[in-house]
């Protein structure tokens, strides 16, 4: 049986999800032995524009050329898997995503930057069909390895769709929100990180994006009761997943704000 062909691709981002794949130090040689890697910009230079079974794609789409490149990857791949917050829901590049790009360009580059090609930052699903998303900023290597396992057996992965709170409870963490009055997005954020931030006495910053049907309005009420201003709550939830339905709607003022 021929080995499945896999490509790993990157659009605008910190490349942390590709790096997390290279961070599978103990598993990397086994993974690359089980598949044929046709493209992996960070790890090899013999990258080919060929058809493949699975494309893993990281990054946010912020320039017109990236839309075209993404469409070509989609055409060449049987399954397209978004990896990380940027590819899934926009990530940090999509903070204030409705703000004028010209205004931002001017602040950072001055008048000289006018020619820089920019479009509204967007996750992959706004341009192509995405078959599955592995979330996190960055993704967690154990989730990546698990997902690869499912995919190599011909299944779509099953990853947790319960909130970070469940992981905190499992670890018997004292609730940072209730006991320490630390603002925490754990109740609306997808698990998978083993509750990293609350385990370090910090509020969850929401880097895995929202769970399905996240009750952002309830989170908003809890944070308001703690005395946090409306604008501050919008800034808190508006970091990693502004292009998700629940947080996008909340930020547009449709959801209880």
């Amino acid at each position: 049986m021929p080995k499945p062909k896999i490509g790993i691709f990157s659009f605008t981002c910190c490349e942390g999800c590709q790096l997390e794949i290279v961070n599978c130090e103990d598993e990397l040689l086994d993974i690359v032995g089980a598949v044929e890697i046709v493209s992996f910009g960070m790890a090899q230079s013999n990258n080919l524009d060929v058809d493949m079974d699975i494309a893993f794609v990281e990054g946010t789409i912020v320039q017109p050329r990236e839309v075209e490149d993404l469409k070509k990857i989609r055409e060449r791949s049987n399954l397209l898997i978004a990896i990380g917050a940027c590819a899934t829901y926009g990530g940090v590049a999509a903070i204030d995503r409705d703000r004028s790009r010209d205004e931002l360009k001017k602040i950072v580059y001055g008048e000289d930057g006018a020619f820089i090609p920019t479009i509204k930052p967007s996750p992959l699903y706004e341009h192509v069909k995405v078959d599955f998303s592995i979330q996190g900023c960055p993704i967690e290597k154990h989730q990546f390895i698990k997902a690869v396992g499912y995919l190599l057996h011909g299944d779509l992965p099953i990853l947790p769709d319960y909130p970070v709170c469940t992981e905190c409870k499992r670890k018997e963490n004292e609730c940072v929100l209730v006991h320490h009055k630390i603002p925490c997005l754990g109740p609306i954020t997808r698990a998978g990180c083993d509750a990293r931030c609350p385990s370090h006495y910090q509020g969850c910053d929401g880097c895995f994006g929202p769970i399905e049907e996240a009750n952002v309005a309830m989170e908003y009420n809890v944070l308001r009761e703690m005395g946090i201003e409306k604008d501050e709550i919008a800034r808190m939830v508006g970091v990693f997943a502004t292009a998700s339905d629940s947080i996008g709607d909340f930020l547009k003022g449709k959801d209880g704000k």
Binding site: F11, T12, T60, V62, Q63, R65, E66, V92, A93, I95, D96, E103, L104, K105, I107, V108, Y109, G113, I116, T118, P121, E232, R235, V239
Partner: peptide, 19 residues
């Protein structure tokens, strides 16, 4: 260099330093 711009220095303005 054809990396896209993410405008970090502009996006951080208006946020609290803890971010």
């Amino acid at each position: 260099i054809f990396e896209g711009s993410r405008f970090f220095e502009a996006l951080i303005r208006g946020r609290h330093y803890k971010d």
